[in-house]
């Protein structure tokens, strides 16, 4: 059974159809990529998956349970965590407290040790006591990831985690994602850094104009003429 099953999701904003019948799934222990040109509806789909946006039609299931109309915090309790493309840090708390709030919300018993382990694992040791709002984008993205991980999720949704990262940082991010998947976490990754996507993803879905136009392993998707067309336009 798939960890996440998104079935025929439609989202309409006024006269505009942002997502029109997208279906995709993500498995535990895999990094699933969701790519597509700007305005394809990727962030909207993310918002639907974690409950910030109600879909016009369609359903979302986590571990076989239909969660389409659950509030975001209830989905978090069922193991969904996410990061935001436009950073949503608790900017007046320190980095450590950002992660700590998340661990506390997840009712972990060993909050402190979880937080400290995550700080080391994600590589935030040097900035742990700085106020999150003062961080450069690269570290801020890492804080978002660490914060999401602190809730001990089953499914991690990452919305452009590599934007604003240097090449070295994004390489580190790649290996972090791989190792998380190897531990059994399901990762759904929206990303524009194609080097990263092609390197870490097990399976890729391509969203264009609100529809999934292709899916498959990275090498296959890269050769797909429909994908090239979606990105480069008709020749």
């Amino acid at each position: 059974m798939a960890l996440l099953y998104v079935d025929q999701i439609m989202v309409r904003f006024g006269g505009v159809m942002a997502v029109s019948g997208a279906t995709l799934l993500a498995k535990a222990g895999q990094v699933t990529g969701l790519i597509g040109p700007n305005g394809a509806g990727k962030t909207t789909l993310f918002n639907v998956i974690n409950g910030i946006q109600d879909p016009t039609a369609g359903s979302v299931s986590i571990d076989g349970e239909n969660v389409t109309h659950l509030a975001p915090h209830k989905r978090a309790q069922r193991g969904v965590a996410r990061t935001f493309q436009r950073l949503e840090l608790f900017s007046s708390l320190t980095v450590r407290d950002n992660i700590r709030v998340a661990a506390e919300l997840a009712m972990l018993t060993n909050v402190s040790s979880t937080v400290e382990k995550l700080i080391v694992r994600v590589g935030l040791t040097d900035v742990a006591d700085r106020t999150a709002g003062d961080l450069p984008t690269g570290s801020a993205r890492l804080v978002e990831i660490a914060r999401a991980l602190a809730t001990k999720p089953k499914l991690l949704l990452l919305d452009e985690p590599a934007s604003g990262l240097s090449d070295i940082e994004s390489e580190h991010l790649g290996s972090l994602l791989r190792s998380l998947a190897d531990e059994g976490l399901g990762v759904l990754l929206v990303e524009h850094d194609m080097d990263l996507v092609m390197r870490v993803c097990d399976h890729i879905f391509v969203l264009d104009l609100g529809e999934i136009i292709a899916d498959g392993p990275p090498a296959e998707v890269r050769q797909n003429p429909r994908v090239l067309e979606a990105y480069l336009g008709a020749s």
Binding site: D195, V197, V227, L228, Y231, L232
Partner: peptide, 13 residues
């Protein structure tokens, strides 16, 4: 040049 700018460098592993 375009493909590599948009969809990543082919020579990458």
């Amino acid at each position: 040049a375009l493909t590599s700018a948009y969809l990543g460098d082919r020579s990458d592993p």
